[in-house]
Nucleic acid binder design. Structure first.
Lengths: 121, 121
DNA sequence: ATTAGTATTAGTAATTATTACTGTTTATAT
DNA sequence: ATATAAACAGTAATAATTACTAATACTAAT
């Protein structure tokens, strides 16, 4: 993967926030640095960075969001303000348990807690 | 919510399978019973049935799927064949733990195990 | 340093899943 | 039976994302 100014800018934007930004949000930010950057460029690079394991994608309903934190972790999604915050939940022997009981080889565990965050009553 | 033949057909289709069908799949099935049914009707009724708590929606990446099983449970998604199979994972004191440690009021827990199901090596 | 080759880009068109609109049909309470 | 509003079919619109294309810009080899 050859260097490009656009990709480096996009990577820096994702790494600069804990808000798990969407492609649109990254695009809006990237335009401040590179005014004529294309939305397609943002999507293509987010995908490439994801494929390379440099960032990861998380699914928020039908919307893709991106996360610089590649450590295994989970998310709390607030239905009031829409925020998505990291949380580390213990799921130690989950993979083994599922392998033994269902012969299903777990490669990834996606846990999202839906609810109301501490900003609201 | 007034009776409608279309909605009843759609409900029966969702209740007839464990495959967690998408709107498109339900539409294809519904057309066999009601050839001129509209895709919009399928979407509208899936939404209504969900809002009424008669079925529930689960998110498979960016695709919405529907599930007649309203018991709290989780899913195993096979990356090889795309199947989505029910699994009940223990997460007993999760809500209390998260409430105490993060002051986050959990209303719903979404867990998807990504991996390879027992149909493949 | 110049060139050649190809990855990457901007801009635009196309696709996919889903929702909104509109005039017509249909369930159901009176 | 009739009125009323919910629901419908058909179609257009939207949102998120991907694909296409001709021009641009890295970078490795001359």
């Amino acid at each position: 993967m050859r260097y490009s100014h656009q990709r480096e800018t996009i990577r820096e934007i994702v790494f600069s926030t804990n808000s798990h930004p969407s492609a649109d949000w990254v695009y809006a930010r990237a335009k401040k640095a590179i005014p004529n950057i294309s939305l397609g460029t943002v999507y293509r690079n987010l995908k490439q960075l994801t494929d390379q394991g440099i960032i990861r994608v998380i699914h928020d309903g039908s919307l893709a969001r991106y996360d610089w934190n590649k450590e295994p972790h989970d998310h709390m999604k607030c239905t009031t303000c829409g925020s998505m915050v990291d949380i580390k939940l213990p799921n130690g022997n989950l993979k083994n348990m599922v392998k033994n009981q269902h012969n299903f080889e777990v490669s990834d565990v996606e846990i999202t807690l839906i609810g109301k965050c501490n900003k609201h009553d």
